[in-house]
Simulated scan of single mutants.
Amino acid sequence: MENQIELVVYGADVLCPSCVNLPSSKEQYDWLQAAISRKFGDNGVIYKYVDIYNPPEEKPYQQFATKVIDEDMFYPVVLVEGEVVGEGNPRLKTIYKALEKKGLKPES
C-alpha cells in the first residue's frame, strides 16, 4: 500500500475518572495495534501514542491533546486520519470500518 493511514491514540498514564474498570490508554493502544495487525497485516497503518499531559512538539498533536483535556473527553481517544473514531472504550468494529473507508483492505 502506498499511502500510510495514521492512527493516533491520545491518552494518559492516569485512568480517566469514568474509565476506572478499563485498561489503561497505553494498554488499549498496544491491544489496538495487535488487533489491527492481525486483521490488516503490518503495513498500511502508522501508529502513534500521544500522552495528553506531555504531547510531542508538533502543533496538531499539542492542540488535540489540549482539546482532550479542556473538553473532558474520555480517553483513550482514537483518531484515524484526524477523525475521532473512538473515545473511552474504543470499539474495534468502528475502527476497522474507519480504516477500510480510508482504503485499507483486510488480509485474506
Rank of each mutant, 00 (worst) to 15 (best):
Q28Y: 00
P17T: 11
C16A: 04
K67N: 15
P76V: 04
V80K: 00
D72T: 15
F40N: 10
I52A: 04
K102I: 00
K59N: 11
K93M: 14
A12S: 13
D51F: 14
V85K: 00
T94M: 02
K59S: 05
A98Y: 00
P60V: 08
P76R: 11
L22C: 12
I46C: 07
P76M: 14
V8T: 11
G103R: 04
G11M: 04
Y96F: 08
L22D: 11
R38G: 09
L92I: 09
E58P: 12
I5F: 04
P76Q: 09
P76A: 12
D51V: 05
K39G: 14
Y53D: 04
D42E: 13
N3P: 10
Q63T: 12
L99Q: 03
E2Q: 09
Y49N: 02
E57D: 14
K97W: 08
Y75T: 00
M73R: 06
Q62R: 15
V77W: 00
V9M: 03
Q63M: 07
V84A: 01
K102P: 10
I69A: 15
F64R: 05
Q4V: 05
E6G: 15
L104H: 06
E87Y: 13
V77P: 05
C19Y: 04
A98I: 01
M1P: 13
Q4D: 03
V50H: 01
V50M: 03
I69S: 15
S18K: 05
G82Y: 08
S108K: 12
V77D: 00
Y29E: 10
Q28H: 07
A65L: 03
T66I: 10
